[in-house]
């Protein structure tokens, strides 16, 4: 028993060291822009570079549109599969995992080849490219989007709630807007934050479609010749991601307290 506890803590300690040493080293390095003393110079320079701020805003916008499109696609899909074709669930789940297996580089070349000519040329203007970027991000975010939305629907027994609403006279749009979506709020927020975090850090799709307009390629480029600032950027994007994760956790826990108890026994 005692021995067990010791080993538990031992492994927790090892993994913490594994995660935090590189992070600490990066942080430490980012403070050494001025020789011989610790300073926030790298952070200051980073803020002063207009490209960085502009790309951060661009990527955030792309991220928000990705979230919108992703949720518009996934919420009705997951809902209808649960309601009308529960046997298709494993299939959908499998499809949602494909982005893990197909490398982003394959995806982006596929997109460019398909849409550079033919019936629907999108690569010859900025709007088209931005749209391709968003569409690609929806695909990359699919595993997270699907999982969050599906978990949210599990927590509230959507099928029975739908039937209850139907028997009370509600039509499909009413059920969606008044019953399903309000109860998925925390699941959808979770999906949104995860997607945003992915889009902010993504490199491959962004490089090939929009280049240095996006945040990911900018971090990379800064890293090529301004090492201190690149470290600072990494730390900042880590902090952004963590703040988002913390928010997910917070919102998720509140959502669980509201949702799961109320859904009652099956």
């Amino acid at each position: 028993m005692k021995k067990n506890v010791f080993w538990n803590w031992f492994w927790i300690f090892i993994s913490l060291v594994y995660f935090f040493i590189p992070l600490y080293a990066t942080f430490n390095f980012s403070l050494k822009a001025r020789k011989g003393e610790l300073s926030l110079l790298a952070y200051q320079q980073m803020m002063e570079d207009p490209r960085i701020l502009r790309s951060l805003i661009f990527s955030t916008e792309i991220g928000l549109l990705t979230i919108l499109l992703g949720l518009l696609l996934m919420v009705p899909t997951v809902y209808l599969v649960r309601l009308k074709a529960p046997r298709l669930r494993p299939v959908i789940e499998f499809i949602s995992l494909l982005p893990f297996v197909i490398p982003a580089i394959v995806l982006v070349f596929g997109l460019i080849r398909t849409y550079s000519g033919g019936l629907l040329p999108l690569t010859n203007n900025y709007t088209g490219l931005n749209f391709l970027l968003i569409a690609g991000y929806v695909v990359i975010g699919l595993p997270y989007l699907y999982r969050s939305v599906d978990a949210g629907m599990s927590a509230i027994d959507v099928v029975t709630l739908t039937e209850a609403a139907q028997s009370l006279g509600a039509s499909w749009p009413t059920i969606m807007l008044r019953v399903i979506i309000p109860n998925l709020r925390s699941a959808m927020l979770g999906a949104a934050f995860l997607t945003l975090a992915i889009v902010l850090g993504e490199f491959t799709l962004a490089t090939f479609l929009v280049g240095l307009k996006a945040f990911g390629p900018v971090i990379w480029q800064v890293g090529q010749n301004r090492a201190y600032e690149a470290s600072a950027l990494v730390i900042v994007s880590f902090i952004i991601t963590w703040v988002l994760m913390g928010l997910i956790n917070f919102v998720g826990r509140r959502g669980a307290a509201d949702g799961s108890v109320a859904a009652g026994p099956r």
């Binding site: 029975t160 039937e163 209850a164 006279g169 109860n183 509201d258 949702g259 859904a263 009652g264």
Partner: peptide, 14 residues
Amino acid sequence: NVGMVFQSYALFPN
């Protein structure tokens, strides 16, 4: 116009 009561209550949690 038929009322239905379910085993799992199915009250709207929100």
